[in-house]
């Protein structure tokens, strides 16, 4: 797949539509994600950003056409915003990785695996292997979830709100890891975000949606008043968002 300028394309979406419970969530959304880029999808709360990501991951029934340049589902990495777990469950980072990465039942004892530490080291989380999940900060949890998504190394990586509940140093570290994945491994990254300042620093391209596409262009124009009005529908909302 290539775009009009002949550049390779990793994700191609045309006329994507999604309705849930009679409510139109996405309406004729079309966008193109170039290979080896970081592509941010932004928009106000309830705009359909996470639903778009779920359509890409294959968990939402939708209309329209989605094409992903990947060798299969295993070639698509996904980093959820959080895990749908009771915080009191006694789970460690090791347990999460064993569940996500291996077929052998995670309740069977196993020897210590240097491979898991090495995997976590990719995102600077090697020291967290035996840490209880409930004791992780937002930034640490995000790095652990990113590490699991890198095994096997995906061609396309999907991230849902990586900045939520993450402090500034944690987010800076996370942004460095994502930039490294793009530059050194050629990974295409699609991230859903509401932090426009972070998007402006990190992304190569931005698509704003609010049910339909409201902006599609480079991140440096995000600070234009007209663009912000189009994305958020009013300057009041914008003041706090940037």
């Amino acid at each position: 797949m290539t775009d009009a300028a002949g550049r390779p394309v990793a994700v191609w979406i045309r006329d994507l539509g999604l309705s849930l419970g009679g409510v139109r969530i996405l309406d004729r959304v079309s966008l193109t994600v170039r290979s080896r880029t970081i592509h941010a999808v932004v928009g106000p709360n309830g705009a359909g950003k996470t639903s778009l990501l779920r359509c890409l991951a294959g968990t939402m029934p939708h209309t329209g056409d989605i094409r992903i340049r990947a060798k299969g589902r295993a070639d698509i990495g996904y980093v959820p915003q959080s895990l749908g777990l009771d915080g009191a469950l006694p789970l460690t980072v090791r347990d999460v990785l064993n569940v996500a990465l291996h077929r052998r039942p995670a309740f069977l004892p196993r020897r210590r695996r240097p491979a898991l530490t090495a995997l976590l080291d990719r995102t600077g989380a090697g020291h967290l292997l035996d840490r209880p999940l409930a004791a992780l900060s937002g930034g640490e949890l995000r790095r652990v979830l990113l590490a699991q998504a890198l095994e096997p190394m995906p061609t396309v990586l999907l991230l849902d709100e990586p900045a939520s509940n993450v402090d500034t140093p944690g987010m800076q570290r996370f942004e460095e890891i994502l930039a490294d994945l793009r530059d050194r491994h050629g990974t295409t990254i699609v991230l859903v975000a509401h932090d426009l300042a972070g998007v402006a620093r990190l992304a190569d391209w931005v698509t704003a949606i609010n049910r339909a596409v409201t902006y599609d262009g480079p991140p440096d124009r995000l600070t234009d008043a007209g663009v912000l009005d189009r994305i958020f529908g009013g300057r009041q909302a914008v003041q706090g968002a940037v």
Partner: peptide, 18 residues
């Protein structure tokens, strides 16, 4: 067991794991 647990963690994550 792992599939049941992973689908509990995140259905979308489970889907990308086949």
């Amino acid at each position: 067991f792992n599939a049941f647990m992973l689908a509990t963690f995140s259905p979308t994550l489970a889907r990308t794991r086949g």
